[in-house]
Design a protein around this nucleic acid. Structure first.
Length: 484
RNA sequence: GGCGACAUAGCCAAGUGGUAAGGCAGAGGACUGCAAAUCCUCCAUCCCCCGGUUCAAAUCCGGGUGUCGCCUCCA
């Protein structure tokens, strides 16, 4: 298995710290707003990475934090006249709401800054003690000059940073790029007691403290968006390695950005789309498929038409699953013919291709291509079998299994309690009634067709279509589905 | 100014030395009362441009051009 490591700027063979186990940390959201599509990309990408490790048989410990104490939260809370802690808690819930929709699995641990003040304060204390940090008027700064490795992740020297520093220089800092580990509290801000007075943690320290607490030093994978490389991850390395004297993380993975009209989507540019806005217009499986249809390190340009095209493509996969279900209910053969065996071998080949795509730095774009190849294989098999002596049970099972396997890794469709793939969402309380009504209408339409009243039949099909109910007349009866 | 990424058909997108995956859109055929779904066939002589290395390059090297990103909160 190969993973592109930002630290070395090349793909490396993945060798975990501990055989058979993967410890990974992904920077979670700062909870001051609903998450946008850019956030979602990172979380979907790393969710898929995690799923692939699980599929490969690794024991995975997945940690994703919530930064629930932060300047932006305080600002937002002030604007809304809300308590910062409560505001942050609210957006934690909203985060789960959106991520559940996108089929992102819960992390094993979701630590919050607000619950780890002790660890953070302790780490700051150690950094001061070891001469890597200094106190000025109740603030604590990290002294980057004290850490030789500073800049190794983002590939820049300390001189570069001095030259490029556009921030107004705080005279109290020893180096312009020194960053806050602890910020003293102003009046009315949330504050915690510390050896340096009342205050709160700086932005980067929480990820160091919490990842080290739950994963230890030298853990396997640390992930996040490209824009976290500098300064966030650079600073995490500096803090963690200076405090522990050990390597911090082995593989650094960073996903590319979502762009809008080829321009970076970001909160500061104001051109962002909230996940829930998009989910109002498109099904979650389509959104997830769209996010995985490009390699995670490449930029991904978003617009409605591209998402719609992705939806039409994914419909092909859903149709294949429907066809399989139908074939399975159609009393398949128990014998195994030469054609069945050939088909089984074909699918075996697809599985191997899929694994090798994912082994190569989680190439989900290639992997989804292979999913489509498998769909083509299955459709062709079903087509020919229907013209001969029908499909064989074992082949159908194998086909289902491979689709489920791919789906288990990509996480496109949810699975119900009976291990069935859910492709027609919105199974609510009303759905039983809807189904009965549709069946009734179909029955009446069939009567119209029987007396060759095609005008009525077509009009019914048309009108149902407008309601999102798609009818398909097949040689073996009428099939219907909800519009994907 | 420093650092970095990318440039593949109408659109999206894989592919890091051996002669262009896959999807969307499109064309023709089969099936159908007609649609839809599905199947079959077609759809880049060529991968931004110019040089070079090589028996062989979209893939390596050099030089251009263009687009984007980081250097400041941001996934």
């Amino acid at each position: 298995m190969q993973i592109y490591n930002t630290l070395t700027r090349r793909k490396e063979k993945f060798v975990p710290r501990e055989t058979g186990r993967v410890a990974m940390y992904v920077c979670g959201p700062t909870t001051y707003n609903f998450i946008h599509l850019g956030n979602a990309r990172a979380f979907v990408v790393f969710d898929t990475v995690r799923r692939y490790f699980l599929y490969k048989g690794y024991k995975v410990r997945y940690v994703q934090n919530f930064t629930d104490i932060d300047d932006k939260i305080i600002k937002r809370a002030r604007e809304e006249g809300e308590d910062p802690i409560r505001l942050a808690a609210k957006y934690v819930e909203e985060y789960f709401h959106d991520m559940d929709a996108l089929n992102v699995l819960r992390a094993d641990i979701h630590p919050k800054v607000s619950e780890h003040l002790n660890e953070i304060i302790e780490m700051v204390r150690v950094l001061i003690e070891r001469g890597h940090a200094y106190v000025v008027d109740g603030d604590v700064y990290y002294n980057i000059s004290s850490f030789g490795g500073y800049g190794k992740l983002s590939g820049r020297s300390q001189e570069d940073m001095q030259a490029g520093a556009r921030v107004e220089v705080d005279r109290r800092k020893k180096h312009p790029m020194d960053f806050a580990l602890w910020k003293s509290a102003k009046e009315g801000e949330p504050a915690w007691d510390s050896p340096w007075g009342l205050g709160r943690p700086g932005w980067h320290i929480e990820c160091s403290a919490m990842s080290l607490k739950y994963l230890g030093t030298d853990f396997d994978i640390h992930g996040g968006g490209f824009d976290l490389i500098f300064p966030h991850h650079e600073n995490e390395i500096a803090q963690s390695e200076a405090a522990t004297g050990e390597p911090f993380a082995r593989y650094w993975m960073h996903n590319g950005f979502i762009t809008i009209n080829q321009e970076k989507m970001s909160k500061s540019l104001g051109n962002f789309f909230l996940v829930r806005e998009i989910l109002d217009k498109f099904p979650p499986d389509v959104v997830r498929f769209f996010l995985l249809s490009t390699h995670y390190r490449s930029p991904l340009d978003f617009d409605d038409e591209k998402l719609a095209a992705a939806g039409r493509g994914l419909e092909r996969v859903k149709n294949c699953i429907r066809a399989l279900k139908e074939a399975l209910q159609g009393n398949p053969r128990h014998t195994l013919s030469g054609a069945d065996k050939t088909f089984n071998e074909e699918l075996g080949g697809r599985l191997a291709e899929f694994n090798s795509a994912m082994d190569d730095d989680f190439n989900t774009a290639l992997a989804t291509g292979i999913l489509f190849d498998a769909v083509g294989d299955i459709n062709t098999y079903l087509h020919h079998a229907a013209q001969a002596d029908g499909p064989c049970l074992e082949a159908l099972h194998k086909a289902f299994k491979i689709i489920k396997t791919f789906n288990g890794v990509l996480g496109l469709f949810k699975i119900d309690a009976g291990d069935n793939i859910i492709i027609d969402g919105q199974s609510g309380a009303a759905s039983g009634l809807v189904e009965a009504l549709v069946e009734l209408i179909i029955k009446m339409r069939q009567e119209a067709r029987a007396r060759k009243d095609f005008a009525t039949a077509d009009s019914i099909r048309n009108d149902l279509g407008k309601l999102g109910i798609i009818l398909e007349d097949t040689p073996r009866g009428v099939r219907w589905k909800r519009q994907g």
